[in-house]
Computed example of a mutant assay.
Amino acid sequence: MKIVIVILLFAVIVSLFSGLFFIYKDKGQSDRAVKALTVRIVLSVLVFVLLIVSYYFGLLPGTPGNP
């Protein structure tokens, strides 16, 4: 599960930098930057939900002192 989360976080970073690249390259003439940043938001929400679900089902360890 940890590997999946790390891969998704890496995808968030890639999407963030691709959005930045499209902002500079397109100079506001296209909507590629908006699409890239939308993908980043969706991936970020997916990571957040995945972390909550993984913690709830015990796939990720809790804080020290909790089982």
Rank of each mutant, 00 (worst) to 15 (best):
I7N: 12
S15W: 01
P61V: 09
K27Q: 08
F17C: 05
V39K: 06
M1L: 08
P67N: 09
G19E: 02
V53Q: 06
S18W: 09
K35R: 10
I41P: 00
V53R: 05
Y24F: 15
L51I: 15
I23F: 08
V47C: 12
G65Q: 04
L50N: 04
I23W: 00
T38V: 07
V47K: 04
Y24D: 08
M1D: 06
L37Q: 07
V45W: 03
F21M: 10
R32D: 07
V42T: 11
S30V: 09
Y55V: 09
D26G: 00
S44I: 04
S30M: 13
L8S: 08
P67M: 12
L60N: 04
G62W: 07
T63A: 14
I52L: 14
Y56M: 11
T38D: 04
I3N: 10
V39N: 10
A11P: 03
D26F: 03
A36W: 00
V14E: 02
P61R: 11
F22Q: 14
L50A: 15
V14Q: 01
V14C: 11
I23T: 12
V4E: 11
F17A: 06
G58H: 04
L9D: 11
P61Y: 06
V4W: 02
L9C: 14
G62E: 08
A36I: 01
P61F: 03
I3L: 13
F48C: 12
N66W: 08
V53C: 02
T63Y: 11
G58S: 05
L9M: 13
F48T: 14
S54V: 01
L8W: 06
S44V: 02
S44P: 03
Y24W: 05
I7T: 13
F17W: 07
V4P: 00
F10A: 15
A11V: 07
V4T: 09
A33V: 00
I7P: 00
F17L: 14
L20K: 02
Y24I: 13
G28P: 09
I23V: 14
V42D: 05
V4H: 12
S18R: 08
R32A: 10
G28I: 08
L60D: 04
S30N: 12
Q29T: 15
A36K: 08
F57H: 05
K2F: 13
A36Y: 06
